[in-house]
Write a protein that binds this DNA or RNA. Structure first.
Lengths: 236, 236
DNA sequence: GCTTTGTCGATTGTCGACAACATACAATTT
DNA sequence: AAATTGTATGTTGTCGACAATCGACAAAGC
């Protein structure tokens, strides 16, 4: 810690505070996949939109190889589908898929609630995103509200302390995100959405399994309370 | 159906009965991925085993591209991991992963049971694999028994009529398969395993949710009743 | 003797080019 | 005119070669 070498090193490191933190070595395919995934789940690329490797390669100034690999990642995410020698496109959503996606989400979140209560986990971490949501709702900032909602639920899953659950939830939630971005009815009052979360925290704090599960089921069900057909794209 | 053209076609088709069924166009990457996956989940390639693209390409007489894509599929399956510029290897299993895998499996199968009973689904299709298992158990054919068990559970999931559930279950079950292949304790009597399934069918036929869930929970729990540490490979 | 630096082999990452294939449309034939 | 065949175009599938990076070991310097 204070031997000559380390001292020298520290001195050299501290002068004019250069940024010597580890540089991020994100593989190209991952960077590309992240970009495309974001475009898809935010609705900027709608279901049915075609992805042409050569065009994307030109636009992003890379070769086709990393583009191909990125698209394949999205394919295993279930966001893109490929037809050999024909083309790749953002996977069209069916009513069934939408319904099933929300059913699986509910399954996962209810499991998380069960584990949190069973494990006596401290749920204080949920207050921050919850407060953010109330704030965003009052300001009428829908985007921040959605972001807060995602943080709330992701935190909930994290607290369940189950890596595989988190991983599985992630792959489902990206589709949830996409569906939410695609549906255009803005009927649900923002304040209501935000307000729905606090009771869940309360129930978790009281270790009230019945109430927590009921609230969580109702919460995830309510978000699914719209006509899935509205956002489905015809595979034209 | 009986116009001149169709008649001619049918005549031409029927003479000497040539096999004109659609030829299978399985992409190379899928064929390769299937082969490698099989090798992994049957335990022929153990956790930690390295996968070298060039070597595999030579062995299978294809270029590196489809090999890469196949390995990437296995990567998103969670069966293989890649370290850039270092190598690829069969993902080592941690005790935690094994435990969590079986927990998720139980979650899915219990959900299937719930849906089957709620939907009033006919579960007759479960008898076939169940009978096969009893037969295999009496013959002492462990391999057939395991295959029968897989068919039984896959049929169960299928009966739940939930595409996304089936898909998710598949990705979990391949890991279950791998774990089962890796553990070498053969203490559990074959006949017991086979016998465990019939009561589940009975409960489903009686639409007894409580009993079915309890039996299914117990069944999946029992299979997880071994020391996960035994099959974990050190990431050496 | 210890540290630092240079070099080497192995592996993946990326690239550009060509082949395979499917679709749509024009050309040809009946 | 209708059906069949040929052709053109666009896309993905596959390939071989080269670049980038890593880990380990040897070499050089203090």
């Amino acid at each position: 810690m204070s031997d000559p070498i380390s001292g020298q090193m520290a001195q050299a490191l501290d002068m004019s505070a250069p940024d010597l933190s580890p540089i991020e070595q994100t593989p190209l395919k991952v960077q590309i996949a992240d970009r495309l995934r974001r475009a898809i789940i935010t609705g900027k690329m709608r279901p049915g939109a075609v992805l042409v490797e050569t065009a994307l390669a030109d636009q992003m100034n890379v070769s086709r190889a990393p583009i191909r690999e990125a698209i394949q990642i999205l394919e295993s995410d279930g966001l893109v589908e490929t037809v050999a020698y024909k083309g790749k496109r953002v996977k069209p959503l069916t009513v069934r898929e939408v319904t099933e996606t929300f059913e699986m989400r509910q399954l996962y979140e209810v499991l998380a609630v069960r584990r949190i209560i069973a494990g006596g986990v401290d749920v204080q971490a949920l207050h921050r995103p919850c407060a953010d949501m109330v704030e965003a709702a009052e300001a009428g900032d829908r985007e921040s509200l959605v972001a807060g909602d995602e943080r709330f639920h992701r935190t909930l899953i994290r607290l369940a302390d189950h890596d595989l659950l988190l991983q599985t939830w992630n792959s489902i939630y990206m589709r949830v995100h996409q569906i939410m971005a695609l549906r255009n009815d803005r009927k649900v009052p923002l304040v209501d959405i935000a307000a729905n979360h606090l009771p869940i925290i309360r129930a978790l704090e009281k270790r009230d399994l019945e109430a927590a599960v009921a609230l969580m089921s109702e919460h995830t069900r309510a978000l699914n309370d719209f006509d899935p057909a509205k956002i489905v794209q015809d595979p034209a």
